[in-house]
Amino acid sequence: MKKSLIALAVAGAMTAPMIAQADATLYGSFRIGLEQAEDSDLDLVDQSSRIGIKGDVDLGLENTTGLFHWEANVSTADSGAYSSGIFGKRLAYIGAKGDWGKVLAGRQYHPHYLLINAPVGVFNPGANGYGERFYVAARTLNGAVDFKRVDNSIAYYSPNISGLTIIAGGVFASSGSDSDGTLDDTVDGYNVAATYTVNGLTISGSVASVESGVEDTDVWGLAVSYKSGPFAVALTHEDGEKDTGTSLEQDATHLMGKYTVGTTSVYARYATFDDNSLTTDLDQWGLGVTRVMGNGRVFAEYIDNDSDDASFGDKAQIGYRLDF
């Protein structure tokens, strides 16, 4: 009895400060797929498996909490998938949040990607040949600074004001050579975006720019999505221009529809892509189905890539995913 009391007292003394210090969550998602690509053998491929740690930290302030988030890729299929080691880079940022909004600093999701690309990102594989192929900012104009997860960045998210959230961010990479004095001395990139949600309808807009010394990239995008009961639809448009001496102009439009019954979803997506260096537009459509079972899911998906584009053939994939 006495021992128990002592143990309880010790446990209590140890637990209290730990709770006050931090609340961290270890999480992960393991995803693997069997892919049959046009003119290729069957391939067992990893689908962006990742592990992460995130949490909140008490700062001793009334309305402000610290936060941190680290996430890295782990490959379930190939030992040499990440040349830098067992992990591939994804996210690493810290920040603070309160009723005034939140500020994030570090390597984080680009708000442009979250608002303009993510609403139509229904396919499980994140690979270029699947749904992300025609993301103008995050993929096709992909320059020195990534528009999907961006390094060296600080972003401010306003609180949700009657459905409206405004986001402003900057990239401070100091990566460009400024020998000729043409670069801005402070900011290497910026993003201003806003999203408004009312009764299942979400409208988002984003303008972003990156200056990296050898090339300047400017993009803008609009996204409209609507969800009602089991139906969800999204329409997005992106327009981008990259100046590397000659100007490369691209735009893409995506249309996505999804129908969910219980834990089963069927979805389809169509995308068209225009590039001023190509003589014809490129098209892609896909159809998929996902069944969620507890913390696991299985999916079967098919992507039909435009036959004029030799670099991307048609693909079919079945996959299995476990989250924890």
């Binding site: 089963t264 069927v266 079967a300």
Partner: peptide
């Protein structure tokens, strides 16, 4: 449409 969704899921998963 709910039943059709399940039918599609059945065909997709059973065929693969």
């Amino acid at each position: 449409f709910s039943n059709a969704t399940q039918d599609f899921a059945r065909i997709a998963f059973n065929s693969t």
